[in-house]
Design a protein around this nucleic acid. Structure first.
Lengths: 341, 341
DNA sequence: AGCGGCTGCTTATGCGTATTACCTCAGCAC
DNA sequence: GTGCTGAGGTAATACGCATAAGCAGCCGCT
């Protein structure tokens, strides 16, 4: 039975070096308070090396009350957005010797998933995509938490500048001379999506361009949603010339609908996504988009968690990371001058 | 300092219920050997519920010598192929109360990543995409291991039927009437890629169709590789009419090259990928491909690991999962009859 | 009355590590 | 010699849980 391999323990190293287990622990953990003769120190280090001793992190976690592991709670690992966040988090985590424990929360088990992480004594948790408000606050409060892309006055947050993302989209379109601006986005409670929409709407409105309700399409923020929303827009008597989608996935759905309808993207209709996931460069023409710092969000989240672990934060911090316009093939000047011009 | 939250322990439950800590453990773990009066049992359960007791899994892991966690070692979490495997693994793992510990192995730290997992006393590890032969065999041998898509006579393996995948590709092309068959694939040591190629070549050769060396392109199995390889093919005096790519990513690169060159996919040239990642449906026309059971591989890997944990396997098992042709938009009959017809 | 056997619990111990408190011995001052 | 100090270690304990072993009380049987 090979549940956990028989591994060499500190005691065995101690026996081999002719010292006590405590000596092994003290020397190998470079405890500054420990005064050991150079010769003993060397003997212990050599014995450990010869036996291939590696400390049992589970035992260490038990006594330290620190597991050196962080949890990540996301709704879907396969989604490129969360994959990018996880990847960024993993990079920083492994640099610092931290492990990442994954939790994929489905519709109704997000609380259970959080508990599963907490029960493993994680030193902190990163929450992205899962509505933090739907998690029991008192259980979260017992953890170090960083929430990505959601507001919270109780926990630290880290977010893209969603308002600016939407605003940038509108500015791009307006700058190109568009005046028939459409939007495709979910009716969801998601904070990012709402803010991307708001930033977009604000700038459009401020420019004096009309916000037409038939240009404002509600659709799930995925490929299918974007596809059907775009079909609706294409069926309109007077088509929009520029469409901003709440995320790249729906933009790619919209892209597909346009291509299928023979619409020349970047000419007949300008299309802009948001997130800058890699897939956007695979379609033709390549998807213009607003880059959001997904990997960076994951990476910073880990760093924040690690600093929280040392100096617990009284006041939760809220940081916002900038976004950036990435012009590729799907956006350009309108083909025909808008009526008002 | 809030490293790990102050949580209620079994002893506190015991005090509240007026019993010993052992009683709490015995009752709550439904140990069949423990005979307790119904009334005591109820008191313990109620006390636990009132205090919100949840066992510390770290402590449990230490005494059980079983962490109820599995490791996953992959080269890139962002790659849709590995994301799909991880997602499948996660599904089964969380059904059975197991946690998944991620390790993303970069070029030269794969051994360190494996050790980091082992040090956390994982009950098993799934290795995908990382060359298992490059890992220290004696350290692997101390673990329960399932290797995905690589051969091994020392450890259990789980693989798609790569030969069949390639063969299916060739049969599809030949069945459509193609005779100018090309291939794009890496020169890498990867077993899957080599077998997909071999299966393809075997069937082509067996059909009597010539295997032209200028139709056999070496390229990295990613978008950029597929793109440039396809450019080379397109520049040929006599273009191939059907191209099989070693994976979807390179097929998507090839797709892009074709679209850019004005080639009508599915008519002028038939293009076939392999893996069936979701992105393939986003391009126009949608990518025909060979479906490989990525999620299923991850799921089965976890199941195998769990059964290994109970009944250790003397002889490593090797299982192969079937693949399936998925015809979408990029494959069709050749536009012009091949010379020989 | 005495003893076996069952019920219903408790006590003790170990998992592998970190850490505190203590212990021994040498060297030195006096 | 005694006492003090510091160097160089060890012993003991705790972390939170699981589990083997033990033990008290009671019943029934002879």
């Amino acid at each position: 039975m090979r549940i956990t391999s028989a591994r060499v323990t500190a005691s065995e190293v101690a026996r081999k070096a002719g010292v006590s287990q405590a000596a092994v622990s003290l020397v190998l953990s470079r405890n500054p308070k420990a005064r050991f003769a150079e010769e003993t120190r060397a003997r212990i280090i050599q014995a450990a090396a010869e036996l291939g001793y590696r400390p049992n992190l589970v035992a260490r976690a038990l006594v330290n009350r620190r597991s050196f592991a962080l949890g990540v709670l996301v709704p879907a690992l396969g989604d490129p957005v969360y994959a990018a966040i996880v990847s960024g988090a993993k990079r920083v985590a492994s640099e610092t010797g931290y492990a990442l424990l994954l939790a994929e929360a489905t519709a109704d088990d997000h609380v259970a998933q959080l508990r599963a992480l907490a029960d493993r004594q994680i030193d902190g948790v990163i929450i992205a995509g899962v509505i933090a408000a739907s998690l029991p606050a008192e259980e979260l409060a017992a953890l170090n938490v960083v929430i990505i892309n959601q507001p919270s006055n109780q926990f630290s947050t880290l977010a893209e500048d969603s308002i600016r993302a939407g605003a940038t989209a509108a500015e791009h379109f307006l700058g190109l001379g568009h005046s028939r601006l459409a939007f495709i986005g979910p009716a969801s409670a998601s904070h990012v999506f709402r803010h991307r929409e708001r930033g977009y709407a604000q700038v459009v409105r401020a420019s004096g361009v009309e916000l037409r309700s038939d240009y404002w399409q509600r659709a799930d923020a995925n490929v299918a949603g974007g596809f059907s929303a775009m079909r609706t827009l294409l069926a309109l008597h007077e088509r929009p010339t520029a469409v901003f989608c709440a995320n790249d996935l729906s933009a790619l759905g919209a892209h597909k609908a346009c291509t299928a309808a023979g619409v020349q993207l970047g000419h007949d209709i300008s299309l802009l996504g948001c997130d800058d996931i890699e897939i956007g460069t695979l379609v033709t023409p390549e998807l213009s988009t607003i880059h959001t710092p997904l990997g960076e969000l994951g990476a910073r989240a880990v760093r924040d968690l690690l600093s929280q672990a040392d100096i617990p934060r009284v006041v939760p911090a809220a940081k916002t990371l900038p976004v950036k316009l990435v012009i590729r093939g799907t956006t350009g000047r309108p083909a025909v001058s808008p009526p008002g011009a």
